[in-house]
Amino acid sequence: MTLLALEGISRQVDLPDGSVLPILTGIDLTVAPGEHVSIVGRSGSGKSTLLNILGLLDTPSAGTYLLDGEPTDHLRARRRSRLRGEVFGFVFQQFNLLPRRTAVENVAAPLLYARGRDFLRRRRTAAEMLDRVGLGGRADQVPERLSGGEQQRVAIARALVRAPRVVLADEPTGALDVETGAQVMALLAQATAENGAALVTITHDLSVAALAGRRFRLEAGRLSPLVEQGALGAATSDRSSA
């Protein structure tokens, strides 16, 4: 069964001089429930745009995006927002924690947009999620008092707190040192697996990409499988040049 399916997705933008800039071209991608997929690519290769489209933050110029087999192109903005909150969890490179809110408040923030019991029990759920990522003792700390690794663990807890079916991670280890990055990535993979959520990771780090069951390379807006050692090497050199 396919959870997400991109079929011939293209995205282009109109430039002020009247020309058209293609960003993504003919992207085909499927993601199954619980699957771990990684995408590597240069800066400007269209990775962010692809993630935006997957997370219903952006719409493609052409092609079809199916979510649970249903096309998403005719969804109203309100429905897209609700689906985004219910289906997806986001992990950002720069953590994007809400400043001056405690860890537990940050984790509870997505539940402000939930309904019923999930909304009413949000603080308790958030505390439990922080426990799961090993930060139960730091629930009342504001982000400014947390290390980078701790902040990203808070972000992971926040991404998982609504039990999403897909976690979209943009360079989740990009702002961390190698050792901390490995720990955070292991935690992310483990937590999503425990939740039964699919994980789509965009990364420059081949060791991070290697954790995924399926790996892709995005270059000049085109997506291709990343399976050969040579290709991995090219991706590694991409990171050093980024």
């Binding site: 927002s81 689906l83 909150g85 219910e86 986001f90 950002f92």
Partner: peptide, 16 residues
Amino acid sequence: IREIGVRRSFGATSGR
């Protein structure tokens, strides 16, 4: 603006 963008990623609608 960044915080608002993050909230949109949580599923916040325009109305919200």
